Structures are given as structure tokens and as C-alpha cells.
Simulated assay, not measured.
Amino acid sequence: MGKPLAAKLKRPRILRLLLAQFVVVCAVTGLGAYTGGLAVAVSALLGGGVALLPNAYFAWRAFRYQGAQHTRNIIKSFYRAEAGKFGLTVVLFTLVFVIVPPSNPAFFFGAYVATLFVHWLGPWLLQRPSHT
């Protein structure tokens, strides 16, 4: 018989999750612009950005390695990605509240929370289409 085929796990479709978060940020920003004008839209955009940017960093950092031979690197990259995501979130919150305080905290935090809630859709967004 031939040699056994190596199992190859495909990387998760993280880009779909990030794109969904981006769509939510745009939607809440548009809602803010419609209901309260530019200042409210900026608040929503900043709130969504504080959620989206650290998640994008995590995805970039955590999924750099693939395969069983990189198990240690995968584990290290996840820990570093999570630490970096946390640090980036703290820095972004600090920058927003020091440099550009949101004019509408409800839209700022609403966009932040709505963007984070997209993770609940993760299993659905990351699944691969079945080929039957």
C-alpha cells in the first residue's frame, strides 16, 4: 500500500468574521449618522474600531502557524495574540477617551458591544460549505 495521507486542517475563515464585524461597524455608524449626525457617527465608528482592530490583530497574530510540527509555535502565538489584543484594547480605549472623547457614549459603547457580539455568529460564519 502507499504511504498514509497526512491530515491537513484548513485555517478557519477568520476573514469572514472580521468582515462581518466591519459590516456591523458600518451599520451602526450609518445609524448614528442618520439619527444624530456626524458627531454620533464618529462615536459609533470609534467604538466599533476599538473592538475591530484588536480582533484583526488577534487573527493576524494567532493564525500564523499551521500543522502539528508547529504545535509549540501555535500555542505561543495564541498567548501572544491574546495579550496583544488585550493591550491594544486598553491603548485604544485610552486614546479615544483622552484624544477624542466620544460625543455620544451610548453609540460608542453600543457599536463596541455590537461588534463584539458578532463573535456569537462565529460558528456559523466560520463553517465550511459541505460538498455532498
Rank of each mutant, 00 (worst) to 15 (best):
residue 6 A to F: 05
residue 77 S to D: 04
residue 7 A to W: 00
residue 97 F to V: 09
residue 85 K to F: 13
residue 80 R to S: 08
residue 60 W to H: 12
residue 100 V to M: 13
residue 95 L to D: 10
residue 84 G to Q: 01
residue 71 T to C: 15
residue 50 V to D: 03
residue 42 V to R: 15
residue 45 L to S: 05
residue 28 V to K: 00
residue 56 A to V: 08
residue 99 I to S: 08
residue 108 F to M: 00
residue 87 G to Q: 08
residue 35 T to Q: 14
residue 99 I to W: 12
residue 10 K to G: 04
residue 25 V to N: 05
residue 5 L to N: 08
residue 6 A to I: 07
residue 38 L to E: 11
residue 30 G to A: 05
residue 112 Y to C: 06
residue 34 Y to H: 06
residue 6 A to C: 10
residue 111 A to M: 09
residue 11 R to G: 11
residue 14 I to S: 09
residue 99 I to Y: 15
residue 20 A to H: 02
residue 108 F to E: 00
residue 82 E to F: 11
residue 51 A to W: 05
residue 90 V to L: 08
residue 83 A to W: 09
residue 59 A to R: 05
residue 76 K to H: 12
residue 95 L to H: 06
residue 105 P to V: 15
residue 104 N to P: 14
residue 75 I to E: 15
residue 34 Y to W: 15
residue 53 L to C: 05
residue 9 L to E: 08
residue 85 K to D: 15
residue 107 F to S: 00
residue 53 L to S: 01
residue 39 A to P: 10
residue 92 L to D: 05
residue 7 A to V: 07
residue 31 L to A: 11
residue 30 G to W: 06
residue 27 A to T: 09
residue 74 I to N: 04
residue 82 E to Y: 07
residue 5 L to T: 14
residue 14 I to W: 00
residue 48 G to F: 03
residue 61 R to C: 05
residue 18 L to E: 01
residue 10 K to T: 03
residue 41 A to S: 11
residue 51 A to Q: 02
residue 32 G to N: 03
residue 110 G to Y: 09
residue 5 L to Y: 02
residue 16 R to S: 03
residue 14 I to K: 11
residue 46 L to Y: 07
residue 26 C to D: 08
residue 42 V to I: 13
residue 66 Q to H: 13
residue 88 L to C: 04
residue 60 W to F: 12
residue 24 V to I: 08
residue 99 I to P: 13
residue 83 A to V: 14
residue 43 S to H: 11
residue 48 G to D: 01
residue 87 G to A: 12
residue 37 G to L: 01
residue 57 Y to P: 07
residue 78 F to I: 10
residue 103 S to Y: 14
residue 29 T to E: 02
residue 48 G to R: 07
residue 75 I to L: 13
residue 75 I to F: 15
residue 9 L to R: 15
residue 80 R to D: 08
residue 15 L to Q: 11
residue 7 A to F: 00
residue 31 L to Q: 08
residue 52 L to W: 13
residue 31 L to T: 11
residue 56 A to E: 10
residue 24 V to R: 01
